[in-house]
């Protein structure tokens, strides 16, 4: 295996890490209004329980995307350039959503005012739904192929990107992340929020299993390879087991299974892609491949050493963070708002 293959795998690992970790962050953001809209309890406290399950970790989770972007730039500059200039408007929307979400999460508790919190909640919901859908659309299009001309420029229009396969991909990631988030919430909360999260996960599994199943199967049949059938089976088996385990109160195992479903799906996409990185639908000769899109051997060598030393360290301290904040959160643990009133007292 050459260095370009190593880096293809590392890019896949970074994106897989991003989708597993931000998947439940998005899910938590998407479901926050659903779990917080109960009349019998203080809705805001419940929304804060939900939000604080990802409180200390969501920022670090998001760095997986930044690093994936940087690694793509370093290891496959042609891929980076073609992808991000070609998927201009979807990426713009994702960036806007991420910006809004960051500020909404961080600023929500800063002002003790219902309207303020409502606006921030909108920001969190918008900032979670949009990337959850659009990443699926984008990755489905990468695997499916877009019009890339001889100059390595994507000439597909925005409407071309909204083809049925890609839209199914977007629906799949949205549902999968929502389910992943629901199971994560079942794992990280206590008392009534936990009960509701379990119920919600069971409800979400109903549409997720057929939709994700259809997308995964379509991917496999249209673009897959022999060995990627294993991933299809893994994704299907994992999804099938989620509901039963959640209902049985084994949220840890259920979360492991949704993680496996996300991992299997992302690996299936990358596996189907290889050795291309962006196939062209105009002419196979215009396709970007791991060989014609990669950096020089020296750059790849340097980056391999860096990744080999630094990635384990990152995994270690991120893992430790999850350990430190491993306890479940209940509504009783949420302190009163320490935000300031809008105007001066």
């Amino acid at each position: 295996m050459g260095l370009v293959e190593v880096w293809f795998i590392l890019i896949a690992v970074l994106f897989t890490g991003y989708f597993v970790l931000e998947g439940f962050d998005f899910g938590v953001g998407m479901l926050m209004p659903v779990l917080g809209r109960r009349k019998d309890a203080d809705g805001d406290t419940r929304r804060r329980v939900v939000l604080n399950t990802i409180g200390p970790v969501w920022d670090g989770n998001e760095v997986w995307l930044i690093t994936a972007g940087g690694a793509l730039f370093a290891a496959f500059p042609e891929w980076y350039a073609t992808l991000f200039s070609g998927f201009y408007l979807p990426l713009l929307l994702i960036l806007v959503a991420l910006i809004v979400r960051i500020c909404a999460i961080e600023y929500r508790g800063k002002i003790d005012d219902d309207n303020w919190r409502r606006r921030c909640d909108w920001g969190i919901v918008f900032g979670s739904w949009v990337p959850a859908v659009l990443w699926g659309v984008a990755f489905a299009n990468i695997v499916r192929g877009v019009d890339i001309n001889a100059e390595k420029v994507v000439t597909s229009s925005l409407l071309d990107l909204l083809n049925p396969y890609a839209l199914l991909g977007g629906l799949t990631t949205a549902l999968l992340f929502a389910l992943h988030g629901a199971v994560f919430l079942a794992l990280k909360t206590a008392d009534e929020v936990r009960v509701d999260a379990v119920e919600l996960a069971a409800k979400l599994a109903l549409p997720t299993v057929p939709v994700a199943g259809a997308f995964v199967l379509w991917t496999q049949l249209a673009h897959g390879k022999g060995w990627t059938w294993i991933l299809v089976a893994a994704a299907a088996a994992a999804l099938a087991g989620v509901v039963a385990l959640t209902r049985a109160g084994r949220e840890g195992w259920a979360f492991a299974l949704t993680s496996i479903a996300v991992i299997a799906s992302v690996v299936l996409l990358f596996g189907s892609l290889f050795p291309n990185v962006m196939p062209s639908t105009l002419d196979a000769a215009y396709s970007l491949t791991v060989d014609n899109a990669s950096s020089s051997p020296y750059t790849l060598t340097v980056m391999t050493w860096a990744a080999a030393f630094l990635t384990p360290v990152v995994l270690l301290y991120q893992g430790w963070t999850y350990w430190v904040f491993r306890q479940r959160i209940s509504t009783k643990q949420i302190p009163p708002s320490i935000g300031l009133p809008l105007g001066r007292r």
């Binding site: 730039f73 500059p77 390595k152």
Partner: peptide, 16 residues
């Protein structure tokens, strides 16, 4: 495309 081979490395290192 022109500088990615060079310019990408410090960016990726910054992330890592």
């Amino acid at each position: 495309r022109f500088v990615g081979d060079v310019f990408g490395a410090p960016l990726a290192l910054e992330g890592l």
